[in-house]
Design a protein around this nucleic acid. Sequence first.
DNA 1: ATCCTGAATA
DNA 2: TATTCAGGAT
Length: 410
Amino acid sequence: MDLFSADTVRPPFIAREQSPEWNALPFAERVIAWQRSHGRAGLPWQLTRDPYRVWLSEIMLQQTQVTTVLGYYERFLQRFPTVAALAAAPSEDVLALWSGLGYYARARNLHRCAQAVVDEHGGEFPRSAEGLAELPGIGRSTAAAIAAFCFGERVAILDGNVKRVLTRALAYESDIASSASEKALWAVATDLLPDAPAGEPLHAAMATYTQGLMDLGATVCTIRRPACDACPAHATCQGRASGAPERFPVKTRKLKRGKRASVLLWLQHKERVWLVRRADSGVWAQLWSLPEFDTAVALERAVAPWPGTLEWMAPFKHVLTHFDWMLQPLKLQWHGAVSDALQREIDRLVAVNAGAVDEPGEADVHGDVEEPDDEASVAPTVGEGRWFARADLDGVGIPSPIRKLLDAAL
DNA sequence: ATCCTGAATA
DNA sequence: TATTCAGGAT
């Protein structure tokens, strides 16, 4: 069953067929009416007002689609049923359950936030958007969403979906990246908030309106080919009137990505692979991955004295926001025993990664030619490495492309 | 400016 | 198949 497309479970909403009186309703009331009949309902995090669950869903839904989050949300709650359980957990376990979701700073902030709620707020989330926004990982929009859903606070959200809906409704021509636009759109979002309907608590209106704006952006006012006929704001939408609603929001700055190339050491002994924990900052911070080198030469120098043969595996590209990353795995495999001396060498590689060992020392030990620019040749890690059997990989955080690589060949 | 991934498009 | 794009908080 497709929970995300309202039209699969409900008759299509055709704005044209609505009465003139209905179209004359204020924006918020139109959104609310649409949400009640055509918004997404029944998603796991919509069945509760528990701030812990709503907060978790909002963090997971940042930069991540509903279908992806569904695969993580329940599993996470099973392992951490309460904010106290999450606060008490090792950060390693939190990252393991976040593994594959991406933007791992969210998981680190999530954990810090849980600890702040327990340590500084007696285990209860603040009941206002203002209070929520002071917690790690909760910005203005996420704070407002939680406050609207859980406490019915009359406060505006402004995420990517909402920006799209609003800029189209207004045919807003300025680049939304500017701080002036940001400010203006927050003001618009706040202006459009519903008033308490007669004989109805504001709480319900705020929750429905907030969800409605999100769902409208996700299912009707889509990036490409918006379904204007199905939109409750159809009649007054300036973007639609302009004939090219998909032109909004206006973004003049084009993103340009840099390039980076790295070499990964796949160190395999029998059925196990050697992984290191990455540094506390930078890409894939604190996740487990294959040791990373700037060049094949640097990698070959590091493993030169070791047994086994180096095998070049298929290179692959991984795209991040700010650069295209070409990754070349080199597999070093052997089946003999790991002597204490060799294991010390392997541990030492990690220590070098962490910057704990002087580079000249390494050159001496390996009897290698001195090379300039050696310091940047190995990506930093936090100095921890372990052998992993296939079954061990489930228990730790591993970046998606690395997990995929390991799954395919380990 | 820096984080990651999956979906959409070419 | 390869490339482009979207998406909040810090």
